[in-house]
Amino acid sequence: MPPVKRRLLVLAAAASLVVTGTGCVAQGEQRDPPPPRRSASPTPTRIAIPNVVGQNASTALDTLRGLGFSNVDLNTVDGHIIVLIPEHWTVQTQTPPPGQIRQPRTKIVLGCAKNP
C-alpha cells in the first residue's frame, strides 16, 4: 500500500476513534461505567427565613441571598416611592415572617424606611 494511502487510513481510523469516543480495549478488559447522570431538575432545598427586621436593607439582602433566596423585593413603608440605595434604608417589616421554611424561589418582601 502506498505511504499516502496508509497515512490517510491511519488518520481516518484515529478520527473515527475520536468522534465515536471509542478507544482500544484489550480483550477481556472492561471499561469503567459512565458516571451517573444528574437529574435535570434537582429537588429544591427548603430554607428557614431569618429575621432581618432592624437590619440595614443592604445587609438584609446580602443575608437572604447568601442563604439562597433569589426573589427579594424592597418596598417602602414610610411614604417614599422607591428604594434606590439599599444602604440608606432600614428593614421595618418582612413577608413571609421569620422562621418559616420556604423554597429559595419564594418571594420575600422587605418593607423599608429611609434612614434619617
Rank of each mutant, 00 (worst) to 15 (best):
I82L: 13
I47H: 15
R38H: 07
P97R: 08
P44G: 09
T20K: 02
R102K: 13
L11E: 04
A48T: 15
V109T: 15
P98R: 07
G99E: 07
R46K: 11
G21L: 09
D32T: 09
G28L: 05
N75A: 10
F69Y: 13
V72F: 01
P3V: 06
I85S: 11
N71P: 12
D62H: 03
R105H: 06
I108P: 09
F69C: 14
P42H: 01
S39A: 10
I108S: 06
V53L: 01
G23R: 05
V77R: 09
K5A: 11
P3N: 07
T106Q: 09
L17N: 04
I85A: 14
S70E: 15
C112L: 12
P86W: 07
S41D: 05
T43R: 10
Q92R: 11
T106E: 14
P35C: 03
Q92M: 14
T90D: 15
P98F: 02
V18D: 07
P33E: 05
V52Y: 04
P50T: 13
P44Y: 05
V25E: 01
S58H: 13
P97E: 10
G111Q: 12
Q92S: 13
Q30I: 01
A12D: 05
L61I: 12
G21W: 11
P36L: 03
Q94D: 03
P34V: 12
I81S: 14
L9Y: 02
D73E: 14
P2I: 01
N71G: 05
N56W: 08
V4K: 00
R6W: 02
P97H: 02
R46N: 10
V4M: 02
A60L: 12
C24I: 15
V83C: 13
I101S: 10
D78F: 09
F69V: 15
I85E: 15
K114T: 13
A12G: 11
V10R: 07
P42D: 05
V18A: 07
T20G: 07
Q94C: 06
Q94I: 04
A40S: 12
R7W: 03
H88M: 15
E29T: 03
A13D: 04
G21Y: 06
A40N: 06
P104G: 03
V72W: 02
I81P: 15
